[in-house]
Simulated assay, not measured.
Amino acid sequence: MSSSKKVIELFYDVVSPYSWLGFEVMCRYRNVWNIELKLRPAFLGGVMQESGNKPPGMVPNKFKYMTSDLQRLSKYFDVPISSPADPFEVMFQKGSLRAMRFVAAVQERECGGDKQVEKVSRELWRRIWCEDKDITLPASLSEAATKAGISASEIEELLKLSQSQQIKDKLKSSTEDALEYGAFGFPMVVCHVNGKAEAFFGSDRFELMAHCIGEKWEGPQPSKATAKL
């Protein structure tokens, strides 16, 4: 194994339950594989539109399959996914633009660190895909941030920052980067190995990813990982 860490970028959106699976696995492997994990919050709606992809809700059989598939995956990955009462409304009518701008603001305030980004992202996933709660209102974002350990004064500043042009541009740039790598959905994991970028879509490509970066896939819960959930 090379001593230099391989950089891995994880593009995700909290409206995507499959992104949550990919997120948790990559966080578990961050200290197992010889990698530097970079979280890249982005806007799935923009990726879908620009790539011409159709969301599962637009294809009835896909949507039906997704419901049962997530139940199986929740057990396999040990991630507490439970579909909201109206997944279509959550994913396609309300969307995640405000939430992802908030996550981008948290990342901007951390100045390159990802500890708070990780915690806030996880709490937002929990709200949608475990507790069937809204993530479009400022009060909901505030509650998620509070559970992530962010103070009330910081949250107020983050809510203001999330509506700034600076953050709008930041999220747009991250989304465009994902598209440059060929994204058509999330999660998108991009591994940088020997000067070459290898992109993997979805939460079922980890074994192949490990092979490509010269690491060992130990399943969704590696022995050396520290449990987060």
Rank of each mutant, 00 (worst) to 15 (best):
R127P: 00
F184P: 00
I150F: 05
V7K: 15
G185F: 01
G149E: 10
L171W: 11
D204I: 05
V79C: 07
F77G: 02
T175M: 06
F88V: 11
E108N: 09
A178G: 04
V193F: 05
E198A: 06
T226D: 12
G195E: 09
A152M: 06
R28Q: 10
V189C: 07
S4G: 00
L141R: 05
S151W: 04
K54G: 01
R205Y: 05
W129I: 07
K6A: 05
V47D: 01
A178V: 03
H192T: 11
R72D: 13
C27W: 13
P55E: 10
L44G: 01
M209K: 06
S164R: 08
K196D: 09
G214K: 07
S223W: 10
Y18N: 11
L171P: 00
S19G: 13
D114T: 13
N34R: 11
S3T: 14
G149Y: 05
P17M: 09
K6C: 02
R109Q: 12
A197P: 00
K216M: 09
L159F: 10
E50Q: 15
A152H: 10
N61Q: 15
F23S: 04
L208I: 15
S164I: 06
G46E: 13
K75D: 08
K216H: 12
K38L: 14
A139K: 13
F92H: 12
Y12T: 05
G185R: 03
V14F: 07
E108R: 11
K228P: 00
M58C: 01
Q93Y: 06
L141I: 06
L158K: 06
Q221K: 15
K119Y: 09
G46S: 11
G185N: 10
H211A: 15
E207D: 14
C212L: 09
P84T: 14
A225V: 03
L73A: 12
T175F: 01
I167D: 02
M209T: 03
F186R: 01
D114H: 15
E215S: 02
L141Q: 03
M91E: 01
L70Q: 10
V47E: 03
Q166W: 02
